[in-house]
Design a binder for these strands. Structure first.
Lengths: 243, 243
DNA sequence: TCCTTTATTGAGCTTGACTCGAAAATACCG
DNA sequence: CGGTATTTTCGAGTCAAGCTCAATAAAGGA
């Protein structure tokens, strides 16, 4: 009986090891050649198994890639959470800066995976799984944002999903722009301004201190005109006295 | 000779008509099934020609789709320029709002084409063409932005490409978010807040009056000098009265 | 009308995802 | 251990789809 249990365990371990081998091989091949360029035969060769064996682990090539993507996004989420946990300063804007830096760099480095994620959405219609994984990933930002509001660093009336769109949308688009104009190591130099502008943008648009820039202005204008009127009174007084 | 010329013309016209038929058929099939799902045989059938004929017009399926995409983006550019031309108000922020509204709606309605554009980037490596078309499209924003700076509505030290990333990045990401949470006709309601926030964001972050409180400073300076002058008047009045 | 040039075609070629029957490995039992 | 049942692996074969090409049709020119 003991033997039986042990055998079952080792057998399961063996299967899992093989599955991991397939995933690793698939990951490499997908990154190198993209979804359509990837040959299942090559994945099988790299994993040192027969081509048909893959199909006893995964229904199809698309599902295999889905598994790769899930593993990838889960890893990203963990890393992002680690970045948040390890950031010394606990102010919102410092943490936002750290997250932006991490995300931008990640999106550039793993551009292949980002593209592949959206590639699947077209090829296969039942890709709702990756949607949940995306949600899970952006939850890191959501948590940070809500905390920022709780601590009174962000306007209470700022809308979470709008801010999220600005954050991830801008960074993703910037990453594409940076990729397009890639001349070797120019990357690091171009990332900083993007990250900095993101922080300052959140400061000026969602930050609590600039919340009422409009009223301030009108207040100043009102003050100014009051002073003008006061000044006129003075002048008239002045004239009367000089007569 | 006349006959010859006429024949040449009609012949050329015939070819162009056929090419247009192919493009139209391809457009439909690509949108319906995506790049990989689209069958060249179906495109041929819809265009009422033999499958081989397509390959005498286009090198490959990928190049055919490229042509479809180019036509699509060119159309978008023209439309965007028309929106800019037809917007009554010539202030920067009104025009930005109009452009944002147009772009967001377009991205949502033609989500297929947007996706297909980035799909090609993976499948085929020589897609530099669509890059130029994208550049041409975003030039509409660039022109608007530069004019806004010239007219003194935007901070002179605002960086064009950063603002562009924020604008298109946010709108694209928002479009995806909106698509994900589509419950029939909820679209129109969700688009407006996105567009509004874009305008107000540009106002608070790139607008000249809020230029990182610097302009406020100058307003304060003006107030301060007004107070100084008032104070001087007081002093002179004081002196005169005390005499 | 005849010849040259160009355009069209669809039957095949090739490639690659996926299937399936058989064989190898493993588990189970006496 | 030996034999049998079950599970896992395998790669040759099937099928589908992009693409080629030799034959055919159409057009142009004398």
């Amino acid at each position: 009986m003991a033997t039986k249990a042990v055998n079952l365990e080792t057998q399961r371990a063996k299967l899992e090891r093989k599955e991991r081998a397939i995933l690793e091989a698939a990951r490499g091949v997908f990154v190198e050649h993209g979804f359509d360029g990837a040959r299942v035969s090559e994945i099988a060769r790299r994993a040192s198994i027969g081509e048909g064996t893959i199909y006893s682990y995964y229904e199809s090539k698309a599902e295999l890639m889905l598994a790769v993507l899930q593993q990838f996004w889960d890893g990203l989420t963990l890393e992002a959470e680690a970045v948040m946990a390890s950031t010394k300063a606990d102010g919102f804007f410092d943490r936002l800066q750290a997250l932006a830096q991490y995300h931008l760099n990640t999106v550039i480095v793993n551009a292949d995976f980002i593209n592949l994620t959206f590639a699947l959405r077209r090829n296969n219609s039942e890709v709702s799984v990756s949607r949940d994984h995306l949600r899970h990933y952006v939850a890191v930002f959501d948590k940070l944002f809500l905390r920022g509001q709780d601590r009174g660093e962000l306007r209470p009336n700022a809308v979470l999903w709008q801010a999220r769109d600005v954050f991830y949308g801008t960074l993703e688009y910037s990453a594409r722009s940076i990729e397009m104009t890639m001349d070797s190591d120019r990357n690091l130099r171009q990332q900083k301004p993007v990250v900095d502008q993101m922080t300052s943008l959140f400061h000026s648009h969602y930050g609590v201190q600039h919340q009422a820039t409009e009223p301030n202005h009108s207040t100043l204008d009102r003050l100014s005109s009051k002073l003008d009127r006061l000044s006129e009174k003075f002048d008239s007084l002045d004239k009367r006295l000089s007569r």
